[in-house]
């Protein structure tokens, strides 16, 4: 059942692969602008991570997920769980791109009374499925949702975006084992491998490689892809349609912090990146120059 739906998704009657790439890449470009604009209002934020994950989110929200933007609680929607609450800035950009929240609302990001708090919370924002922030929760909740939806005969997919830092959490691996045991083919994990966590480069904080072999050993169909290569991402997600319908699947996405803005890509990597007042416009200009190339 699930596989059939995946085929339907992967082979839409309409746009060609090239059209899909263009649609996603355009969306990712606009989302990066949204992120810079939101970051400028706050003067800070998880801008580097949000730029890095923009292509992945654009693939999800403009190509993969089955959603009704005007009805965020539609029972048959795909569930996208952001367990990394501090990536909210990136998801708000995606939700605006998908039409779930108005673009104009993005300027309220992080302000009092806003529906868009700094850390993503379900009770604040339409389309935010869970309250992330305490890491290592999303995949376990995703297991429950996938079990529950299958039990109810609802064909929706559950997708959990987690960070490489979240692989440090034992609960992530409890959930990984549970998903394989319960044969949750309707569950997809997307790991943002930006190689950076709060105290520094992931490799120095707690060695997590070899990541693919870990997921494979836990019984997951495993794909690793350049998370800033839109055609490669589309092929990776399309390829999941061929996976055994009883197997949970993980797409490990290697992303570049600050992707699309050389000023930030080359800056010394920091979990919470400092950007000076005059740099926001430079960043926007660099983003547009990159898009023209």
């Amino acid at each position: 059942m699930t596989a059939t739906q995946d085929v339907d998704r992967a082979a839409p009657a309409g746009p060609s692969f090239e059209d899909r790439v263009r649609r996603v890449a355009d969306a990712a470009h606009r989302m990066r602008h949204h992120v810079l604009n939101m970051g400028e209002v706050q003067g800070q934020g998880y801008v580097g991570q949000a730029l890095g994950v923009a292509d992945v989110l654009a693939v999800m929200y403009r190509d993969q997920l089955r959603l009704r933007p005007a009805d965020p609680h539609w029972d048959e929607r795909d569930r996208f769980l952001l367990s990394i609450g501090h990536y909210a800035i990136a998801l708000y950009a995606a939700l605006a791109e998908a039409g779930v929240i108005p673009v104009e609302e993005l300027e309220t990001y992080g302000s009092d009374e806003s529906r868009l708090p700094m850390s993503g919370m379900a009770s604040y924002t339409p389309g935010m499925e869970i309250s992330g922030g305490s890491l290592g929760h999303g995949l376990g909740v995703g297991v429950g949702m996938a079990l529950g939806l299958r039990h109810r005969g609802v064909g929706s997919r559950v997708v959990n975006l987690l960070s490489d830092g979240e692989l440090d959490e034992g609960s992530t691996w409890e959930a990984a084992m549970g998903a394989a045991h319960h044969r949750l083919g309707n569950l997809t994990a997307v790991v943002d491998m930006n190689a950076l966590q709060a105290d520094g480069p992931t490799a120095g904080v707690l060695a997590i490689e070899p990541v693919e072999r870990k997921w494979e050993a836990f019984g997951w169909h495993t794909v690793r892809v350049d998370g800033n290569d839109v055609p490669a991402l589309l092929r990776a997600f399309d390829g999941l349609a061929e996976v055994d319908a009883d197997t949970p699947r993980v797409v490990i996405c290697d992303t570049r912090i600050g992707s699309g803005v050389p000023l930030l890509e080359t800056r010394e990597k920091a979990h919470f990146m400092r950007i000076d007042e005059h740099e926001w416009q430079i960043a926007r200009d660099q983003l547009d120059q990159g898009a023209q190339r």
Binding site: G144, G148, A175
Partner: peptide
């Protein structure tokens, strides 16, 4: 976590 997901 899974119980919460089921309730969701």
């Amino acid at each position: 976590g899974a119980a919460a997901g089921m309730a969701e």
